[in-house]
Amino acid sequence: MDATTRWGAEAARAANSPGVHDFGLLIKTATRLEQRIDTALRRECGISHSMFEVLIRLCRQPGEEVPQRELADDLTLTSSGITRLVDRMEEAGLVRRTPAPGDRRSVLVEPTEHGHTAFLQAAAVHSQAVERYFVKPLSRTDYTRLTSSLGAIHEALREG
């Protein structure tokens, strides 16, 4: 067997390994689910899934103002990415920014009344999509097993 054939066979084994396949399936499934949710939110509520994620974070504690930097961390966005997203949300009347007391470099973000209303509408749309595409295809036992396993993976990533 020449080197090209050997390398090709080794590469094919690696590309077709169970770990590569299973991880690819996870990423493809998560991406398609996110696309379905994003499409439903845009069509029915006029907001993106990313905007919805910001509103989730902002609506968790009534009256809380969240530092924009913390939003970026929570949503795994870059500083410029969260700035552009919050800019669009501010233009849409969903959020407002206020200077952080005692820290001129920090900006706080809070939902507007329109943001709260949009969030509640989007939460219902999101819930329907999650039920249809994430919960319903599985038995209750499989769903519990899946979410428990995802939680364990998430914790392992936080620790390591």
Rank of each mutant, 00 (worst) to 15 (best):
A72H: 08
I47H: 01
D73F: 12
T39A: 13
L77F: 10
L25D: 13
N16L: 06
I82C: 07
L77E: 06
V20N: 04
T83Q: 13
I47L: 08
S48W: 09
I37K: 07
D22A: 03
A40D: 07
R57M: 06
A15W: 11
L71N: 05
M51H: 14
T31V: 03
K28M: 13
A14Y: 05
L41H: 06
L58W: 00
Q35E: 11
D87N: 09
A14W: 05
R84F: 15
K28H: 13
L55H: 02
G81K: 08
G63S: 09
T83M: 06
C59D: 03
S50K: 15
R42G: 02
R13G: 00
D38A: 02
V86K: 10
V20I: 12
A14S: 03
R60L: 11
T78V: 04
P18C: 00
G46P: 08
R36Y: 07
L26Y: 11
L58S: 00
S48A: 06
V86M: 13
H49A: 14
D22N: 05
A15M: 15
C59S: 10
Q61K: 14
Q68N: 03
E65R: 15
S17L: 01
P18T: 00
C45L: 10
D22V: 01
N16Q: 04
Q61M: 12
I27K: 10
T76H: 13
V66F: 03
Q35P: 02
S79N: 14
L75R: 09
L85K: 11
T31S: 04
Q68M: 11
S80I: 14
I56T: 04
I82P: 05
G19C: 07
